[in-house]
Amino acid sequence: MPSDADDFDLPAQLAAVRGGDQDAARDLVNYLYPQVIRIVRARLPRRVPEEDLAQEVFLKMFSRLEQYRGEMPFTHWVSRIAVTTCIDHLRKQQRRPELRYADLSEEEATMIDVVTRDESASHAGEALAARELLEKLLDQLKPEDRMVVQLVDLEQKTLVEVAEITGWNTTLVKVRAFRARRKLRILLEKLEAEESV
């Protein structure tokens, strides 16, 4: 949610933008930019500059503005555009080749040991390795599944919040999260098995 929410009269600005007011359109972009850039940064596909992606989100927002009927808060509507734009970009990217134990760095390989022995990451370096290992595993998922894991497990958002952000219903979010976790568990087991060979 944009920080200066109290000072900004969103309905009035939207009406002005619809009426062709260019200044109001610029104010709207500046108002929504922090919200959009946070979404983009958290889910940024590789090789896509964040500003380009943010620009694409805003262009979609303007082109679809007439379709916005006010059924949900405008900021949620924009969030959905941002999320679907990120998913579209992730989908366009070529899927990474299958992850193998040999592809892991020494720290990431150690992390497999740590998590399978039920030890907690004891220092910052291990936590960072866990994060990098997780990113590699997430790269193996479909963009929608990756998004759900990021939102539910990593950012610890509730199902309702995820549904609001993505526009998917809570059942779909649950199903996607379940499938994604199952796939990630299988991937982890596979890496562990490769390690012990």
Binding site: M111, V115, T116, A121, A127, R131, L154, L188
Partner: peptide, 17 residues
């Protein structure tokens, strides 16, 4: 039973935010 996935996500959360 140890769940490596839960352990990994817990460790990754430490640097997630």
């Amino acid at each position: 039973k140890t769940d490596p996935w839960n352990n990994l996500i817990k460790a990754a959360r430490a640097t997630a935010t």
